[in-house]
Nucleic acid binder design. Structure first.
Length: 206
DNA sequence: CGTTCGATGCACT
DNA sequence: GTGCATCGAACGT
């Protein structure tokens, strides 16, 4: 079942946790790809210095201020598209960044798309666990780009669905790849899952 | 193990 | 002109 809009109209940390185990599905012209969400991060409000809305509304971050249940896609470092599910309520900028998937359908198509990345052209295939490990990798494998920005996640072609997949233990830790807002443990991932982009938690080594 | 750095585009200042 | 919510290879220790 496709998650309804009301799923997203809740506190962002709750949505983040509940997205683990749900399935991101892209029914694209060149085929269907999907994967179980295993790692996410929350970005919450203008008071969150790492949130794109930290400096107030702009053209780019407008989707964050829009209705929950839509996707906010943006281009990062000039070559990676990052996928967020907008949460909370209209007028309050917040979203959940999807950082990693465990691939389900369309593995071969994912491989073909991944090989189009500049540094991967002509290189051998990666193993399945790495296809959607990391936010840049998963958007490439799923064929998600700016063309899908602001689309509703409760309508095709890009949906998030509950397929009854159970996740085991879940861990919270600091978000990665940012310089400000590190004090918040707003990254959430499935423990011991090989598709999670970073395994280490706050306390790294025993 | 660790750190550095190139690829690459564009919103923002 | 600056600085990214990245990736992966190339180095150094």
């Amino acid at each position: 079942m496709t998650l309804p809009q009301r799923f997203y109209a809740r506190p962002t940390l709750e949505v983040a946790r509940d997205l683990l185990g749900k399935v991101l599905v892209h029914r694209a012209p060149d085929g269907v790809t999907s994967g179980v969400i295993v790692e996410v991060e929350a970005y919450i409000g203008e008071d969150d210095p790492a949130c794109h809305a930290a400096a107030g509304p702009t053209t780019r971050n407008a989707p964050l201020y829009g209705e929950p249940g839509r996707v906010y896609v943006y281009l990062n470092y000039g070559l990676h598209h990052l996928v967020n599910a907008v949460t909370e309520r209209e007028g309050f900028p917040a979203a959940v960044l999807i950082r990693a998937l465990e691939p389900m359908e369309g593995l071969e198509l994912m491989q073909r798309r991944r090989r189009r990345m500049p540094w991967r052209t002509g290189k051998p295939a990666v193993d399945a666990a790495q296809l959607c490990r990391g936010p840049g990798n998963l958007s490439a494998a799923m064929g998600i780009d700016l063309g899908l920005n602001t689309r509703a996640l409760f309508r095709r072609p890009l949906t998030i669905e509950d397929r009854g997949v159970g996740v085991g233990a879940v861990t919270w830790g600091p978000r990665v790849g940012i310089t400000r807002g590190v004090e918040h443990a707003w990254r959430c991932w499935v423990e011991a899952n090989p598709c999670v982009s970073r395994v280490s938690s706050p306390a790294a080594r025993p």
